[in-house]
Amino acid sequence: MEPFFRRLFGKESSKDKAKKRLKLALVYDKLEVSDETLSNLQKDIIQVISKYFVINQDSLKLDIRRSEDYSTLVLNTPIVSAKHRGVST
C-alpha cells in the first residue's frame, strides 16, 4: 500500500512493526539471566533468609517470570520456623 493511504487507514507500516519488535527483543535480551547467576543468587538469598528463619533449603524456588511489560523475580519458600533474636550469629 502507498504510505499515504496506509496512514489514512491507520495501518502500521512494516518498519514500525519491525522497530517495535526490535525494541522488545533488546529489552528481553538484557533481562536474560544465566543459570549460574540465578543459582548464585539463590545461595545468597538462602544465607540471608537463614539468619532469620529456619527453612528447608531444597524447597526454595527462585524464578524469573516475564510478561509483555516487565519481568518479576519470584521467590517461594516454606518457613519451618522463625529464629529468635540472639540465636542467629
Partner: peptide, 16 residues
Amino acid sequence: LVERGDMLSHEDVVDV
C-alpha cells in the same frame, strides 16, 4: 523501501 515505510530508517536504528 525506507521512504515507503518498509525498511528501518537510520534514525530508527540510531534511536534503538
